[in-house]
Structures are given as structure tokens and as C-alpha cells.
Computed example of a mutant assay.
Amino acid sequence: MRTLVKLHARRDLAYDNAYNHYLQGRLYDDLRKNGYGEILESGPKLFSYSNIFPPRDAEEGESRSFIFAATDAELVTSVAYGLCSQPEINVGEMPFVAEEAFTLDPQVEERSTLITGTPIVIRFGTETASEYGIDSDYDRTYWRPEHGMDLFFDHLNGNLRKKYERAFDEPAPEPPYFSGYSLQRVVPKPVSYADGDVTYIGTEWTFDYEVRSAAHRRILNLALDAGLGELNGLGFGFMNRTEDI
């Protein structure tokens, strides 16, 4: 389930592509105030969210949108209420006002395609690098195409299985979950923090699917709610149906 929040710019603004931590801070504050602090502390996040789109400079009064998705309908409602009840939203130097929110519940079709709304982040350590024959001296490496599709999908599927088992308290169906894929591009994504910027390396994709069972349908719908890959709580790995683009 998801909510589409309509925003407007309080003044002329330049779009800040390093917005993630600022937007996360506002969302996390609202969630803690509404009694959802525990879900932020441990385990894979069962929610995801888009960027503020379209991602370009805005003039005062111009409209923008934002989507928050989660497996818990009450959590989605809480976020929509939090944003609209305290409608002044400062995302770094981007000042917005939340005007209204709409509930959406997109479901996967029998066969179609999912597409990244924000880049997918996959990271691995030196032990994994050695296992896959990758030469890396870093404690944590961001996946890039030269590291191979086996590593990417092993981590992507493993992460999605953990989310499924947390959401449904039952074993996840066996992968593969997608019948085809296309890597669109590698995206270096800066994120601003109080002590400086960090650049995360993500990737944008399309994933084809064909539903095989009820459990497979659930895990695909979970990808729409909770996102794919890591750092969903920082705004990475948000997914859309191609029908909605």
C-alpha cells in the first residue's frame, strides 16, 4: 500500500539531489511521534519511498509529489497524516507544503515489469568478495556490473527473502523472482550529512516477471511496498509498476 502526497514549493528552489537524509529525518521524526519508532531500529525495513518528483528546480507554488509505501496500511496512513497535519516540510534547502494525500494500492499483474524509482544499493564485504573471486581491499564495496550478476541477484533475492519472512512469518518462496531484467545505468548518488557528503553507488533496472503462485505474487507485491536492495529507509530501491509510469 502507498500514499501519494501532493506538495507545493513555498518559494523558488533549486532541486537538491543529495536530499535523502533530510527527507529521512522528517519521515523518521513523524514515525517516532506516532509510535512506530521500534520498526526503525533493527531488521530489514518494510517500507520504502520515492524521491520528490519531478526532480527539477521549482518556482514558488509549483507542484511536486512524493510516494511512501509500506506493508502496513496503518503505517502508510500515519505517514500521510503526519505530513499533512504539519504541512511545512523542509527538505534541506527545499521548502514545501503538503497539500493533500491519496491512498493507492497497486498490485502486480499476471505478467509485466517493475522499474526502479530510486537506485538499488547492494553492498558486500571482503569475505563475499573473496567468495565471488573479486579483488577488493575495502570492508564494504558497492556492487557494480563488473562484479557479476550472480552476486547481485544472490544479495537482492536474499534481502527480499528476509523481508518476506519478517512480513509474513513464513518461509519465502524460492527464487528466481524475475523472468528477465535490464540494467539501465550505474548511478553515483550523493547524500548530504551534517559532517559532509557521502556518495552511494546504486543501479537502475527494469525487472520482468510472470506470477507462478500465490506466494510469488506476495513477494512481488512486497517489492512494491518495501523496495529492493539495501538502505530502503534512506530512500533507495523504491519500485514502481511500469503501468504507473
Rank of each mutant, 00 (worst) to 15 (best):
Y164P: 11
T199V: 11
S182T: 11
L156Q: 09
P171H: 04
G158K: 01
R56C: 10
S42A: 04
G37S: 03
C84G: 13
A214S: 13
I89F: 15
Q107E: 12
T141Y: 02
R26W: 06
T71M: 15
T77R: 03
D135Q: 07
F53K: 13
A18R: 01
T128Q: 03
Y81K: 11
Y81C: 10
N221V: 13
M1F: 11
N232D: 03
E210R: 12
S192F: 00
P188K: 04
F66D: 08
S50V: 14
L220H: 09
G196K: 00
T203F: 01
I201Q: 07
S112D: 15
C84W: 13
H147F: 04
R64G: 01
R10F: 06
N159Q: 07
F238E: 00
A58M: 14
F102P: 06
L104C: 10
L46E: 07
F68K: 11
G133T: 10
M1V: 14
P145W: 02
T3Y: 05
P106S: 07
T116V: 11
T3G: 10
A194P: 00
N51C: 09
G92C: 04
G82H: 09
G233F: 08
K162M: 07
L228P: 15
W205P: 06
K163D: 09
P188M: 02
P173T: 06
R2H: 11
P54K: 09
T203V: 07
F168E: 11
L104F: 04
G158W: 10
L7W: 15
Y181E: 12
N34G: 00
Y22V: 03
A194M: 04
G61Y: 05
L75W: 03
Y19L: 03
L231N: 02
G233C: 08
R123A: 08
F168R: 09
L46V: 15
E109L: 15
D225P: 15
E74S: 13
E109Q: 14
L27Q: 05
L234T: 06
A9K: 04
P176W: 01
A18T: 00
V198E: 03
V186S: 10
G158T: 05
F207H: 09
M149C: 02
E131Y: 10
F53C: 14
E74M: 12
G229D: 08
T242S: 12
N159H: 10
S48A: 12
L160Y: 05
D16R: 05
S130E: 06
S63R: 13
E41N: 13
E131S: 06
M149T: 02
Y193Q: 04
P171I: 09
G125W: 09
D154R: 04
E99R: 07
R111S: 13
I89W: 14
T3I: 06
Y15K: 02
T71V: 14
G133I: 09
G25I: 07
F47R: 05
A9Y: 05
C84N: 15
F178I: 11
F153I: 06
G37Q: 02
W205M: 07
P106A: 12
K45I: 06
D30T: 14
Y132D: 05
N157P: 02
R140E: 08
K189P: 00
T206W: 12
F47K: 02
R56V: 13
L183K: 07
S85D: 14
Y181I: 10
S50P: 15
E59K: 12
S65T: 15
I219K: 15
N159F: 08
L151Q: 05
A80Q: 11
P54Y: 14
K6P: 04
D29M: 15
I201H: 06
S50M: 12
E110R: 08
